[in-house]
Design a protein around this nucleic acid. Structure first.
Lengths: 356, 356
DNA sequence: GTGAAAGCGCTAACAG
DNA sequence: CTGTTAGCGCTTTCAC
């Protein structure tokens, strides 16, 4: 079991050079004579040596690990972002470690603690939960105690850089799409109000109504928690209203999919009886029944931008509070349709795309 | 930026004890006088010290990190498994680091390399890709060069322990469910044939047909890649047959959801014209149209079992090639229905569960 | 270009 | 119970 592993000294000895030279051959080849490098490389291959990253971390006082924390790994929306982060991280010699919080503060704090204990150099946060130490720093008016970048969420008072789309504008766009189709009684299934992202989306919805001079009706807003089930329940609640809405804007696709099920169970035809809009354009969106009109976010690019920001944070070259806003896009599918037309749109219509 | 962080020596000095005592107070409190512990703790709090895990790893020659590699973080099926792994890991002082491969060999190898470089102690693999070094060891007839546990997949010739359900039996159960409803022309959308899991499920399908004395028809087998899109395409292919199948068994839920879309687009009613069965019972399954009959796997338990096996691997107390088989369950929803009944089943029927 | 040597911060003998 | 001390394996001055 415990056969001794080779270390840099073994390589040095066998290659007939000093440990310093082996180290240099591996990390700064440009300062070592090619012939020496060759000799070292051969020895390394022969002994199947692999450098001890832990020792290296200890010595260099950095791990080159970045922790990325997502609320739920199964949320399809995060997948693209993580991918983008990985891309840039890899190109710059960083490794990314993924953590899942399940919206559990304790787990988030545990991942965050890896930074204090030098297991990682920085934290990229997706989702709306903040580590306790970070929250305390906000209250104290200080900057984050850990190198931090927020991808897809924003926190008032926090000076760490963030990447996001303009959620207000995106949600307004979605709502205006419905207004443009003649809908006047439009409901919304919002996200948790503790969440800036939810607040922004709700605000966009209200802004669109206001611009069309439609009175805001509290009853038409039901709060969900981004889960499929909560969308289902929220839709039941909306459809129990008298009169019910003819269209509903959902703060994410999962809730929209739950909402569609509720409408279907009540015998409503979509989009004729009820139009539904989602948010995120997850992979399941185009397989929803009917396929979901939604807002697409540039997930890969969000991830790439977040990681670039992280690199700048680690090299102390980012302005505190820097915010990057990326463009969104309205994807029109069959869950919304011309309300006023006589021939209701049918399935198998090709997907159209409208630049935001 | 670079203010010096406190280390164990600072604590020792300020608390008036030796570094060894500080270390012991933190890691073996039972051998230290309570009063001393108290003193140390107070000092630690005062200086906001947190132990350097990297130094500790270097000294102890272990990191207490376990890497869990999933093919795609967005696959809802893996979420529960990861959760189970986390549970047991946390209870035993391990941290888990998640890696996503995107079915990319290079990325998998990079995560695996973290073990050689001491960044992690072991690897739990979900999915069907094997690290290069592991594959080589199989070819050489040797045991895995890294502590390895397979959750949900099996590889012939590999001696590492694994956890899985009986995929043959589960797939047979699903197929028999359809046979029991009077279907005779049953197709299947299988997974990649490189995959033991796919092979097992296909075998279960064939076994069920054989038992019912139904001739196996090559045409009724279409291979997908577990993606929604591939399920869609495979179903188009199956429905182009003459005669088409009256029921289809899919090797996972995502393909089943894609398949349902294809059937819907061709104007088929489910389950009347076509019954569909999935596999995994992902969260979206009950929101499919119609809700999907599927095989549920005990995901949390799979994860917990895998992590327990890993702990035993690390303490050298597991028999090579140990396999744990966990029970599965058929979840009957509306995507399958009594084919021979006169009144076709309608929506909103409560979900029934049948123990496997 | 290369080598010698001093730690990075911690843990685990060993001694008391 | 507590202190002293020798490394874990690597990187990085500082010499040559």
């Amino acid at each position: 079991m415990c056969k001794k592993v080779t270390n840099i000294r073994d390589i040095a000895k066998l290659a007939g050079v000093s440990v310093a030279t082996v180290s240099r051959a591996l990390t700064k080849p440009e300062v070592v004579r090619p012939a020496t490098i060759e000799k070292v490389k051969r020895t390394i291959a022969a002994l199947d040596y692999s450098p001890n990253a832990v020792a290296s971390s200890l010595r260099r006082q950095r791990s080159d690990n970045i922790i990325v924390v997502v609320p739920n790994i199964h949320n399809p929306f995060y997948s693209g972002i993580v991918q983008g982060i990985e891309n840039i991280a890899h190109d710059n010699g960083y490794k990314i470690l993924l953590g899942e919080t399940q919206d559990n503060q304790d787990r988030l704090d545990r991942y965050t603690a890896m930074i204090a204990s030098r297991g990682a150099d920085g934290l990229v946060l997706l989702g709306s939960l903040l580590p306790t130490v970070v929250r305390e720093s906000i209250n104290a008016g200080k900057e984050s105690p850990v190198p931090l970048v927020l991808a897809c969420e924003r926190f008032d008072g926090l000076l760490s850089p963030s990447v996001e789309i303009d959620n207000v504008a995106a949600s307004r766009l979605a709502t205006e799409h419905l207004l443009g189709q003649g809908h006047e009684r439009i409901g919304t299934i919002s996200g948790p109000s503790a969440n800036t992202l939810s607040v922004d989306r709700l605000q966009g919805y209200r802004a669109a109504l206001r611009k069309s001079q439609i009175r805001f009706d509290r009853q038409l807003v039901v709060e969900g928690d981004f889960s499929i089930r909560s969308g289902y329940q929220a839709m039941l609640q909306l459809l129990a209203l008298n009169p019910p809405p003819s269209a509903v804007v959902c703060a994410n696709d999962e809730m929209a999919i739950g909402a569609q099920k509720a409408a279907r169970e009540l015998g409503l035809d979509m989009p004729e009886d009820l139009a539904v809009v989602g948010f995120d354009d997850i992979r399941f969106a185009q397989y929803a029944v009917p396929p979901l009109t939604t807002i697409a976010q540039p997930t890969i690019e969000i991830g790439e931008t977040a990681m670039r920001l992280m690199i700048r944070v680690l090299t102390a070259s980012v302005a505190p509070g820097e915010r990057v806003v990326l463009p969104h896009e309205l994807i029109v599918r069959e869950s919304t349709g011309r309300r006023l037309s006589t021939a209701p749109p049918r399935r198998a219509r090709p997907t159209r795309r409208a630049k935001s």
